[in-house]
Design a protein around this nucleic acid. Sequence first.
DNA 1: TTCCAGGCAGTAG
DNA 2: CTACTGCATGGA
Length: 298
Amino acid sequence: MDLISIAKPPLFNFEECKWFLDRGYDDCMHQVLETSIRKLIPTPEGNCLIEVADGDEALEAVIITGPESPAAVTAVRQYLSSWFDMERDLNPLYDLTHQTKTSWLTDPYQGLRLVMIPDFFEAISWSVIGQQINLKFAFALKRRLVELCSTPHEYEGVEHYTFPSPASVAKLTVAELKERQYSQRKAEYLIGIAQQFEAGLLSHEQISGLPDTPQMIEALCAIRGIGEWSANYVLMKAFQRMDCITHGDTGLQAAVKRQLNLDRKPTREEIIEFLKPFKGWESYLVFYLWRTLSDKKT
DNA sequence: TTCCAGGCAGTAG
DNA sequence: CTACTGCATGGA
């Protein structure tokens, strides 16, 4: 079977990206092995279970099971490239942190890419699921939704899934999700959003067709269940917008609090001020700040 | 026990 | 406009 090679840009570190996907949570959307990652990726011709690993010059993936036609290979290649944000030149970001003497923010994780959630529906669903609750519980809720709606693809004793389609979530009842420990509200938000996708009222094209990030945030915030935090999160993870700040984010607040040595959580203005030197790279700053939280306190 | 997690909408003043 | 509240659950 053919190897799918994706050239690695400068400042790309597969190990750092893999670390992010293996933080100790039970994420049902991929499986992290010693030196590789397995994931079930949807293509126009069916799902491909792929295994991706690091190579000398390129990221190297193989299709373990599923179609290997040119169209499927193209879809896999595009997915992996988006997933690890591989087309972006990070040199300007690293230049910025060096110029502003904040290289301690980037250099310990050199080559870490903003790990994306390329599918819009998956990203917006995950943003709703993750609201307010701790991440462990959020991953448990996601798994319950996925196991309810998606068909498992078993390989070597592990169940692999693609994220449920809007159609399958739109058909659920609030009661089915409440049985799985979703709150009434979370269940309503999720099903409502799925129904909007189904009705053609919400799509990647519709949002990406808007002129700029502020208009996209406005459009997303008009959706019930989506506030400023979720809108920015989704634009960062599914639309690869680089100027997103997840205001209200407890993780971001904790990270900036630590970096500024405050004894309270920073205000919105203090966070804006902290990110001011990094105009156009706010999303990466947020992602790297989250990363710092997993390091021991200094 | 109480408080808070990668928030949000609903309500009251 | 701002302030306050409930939400589901688990870990600190």
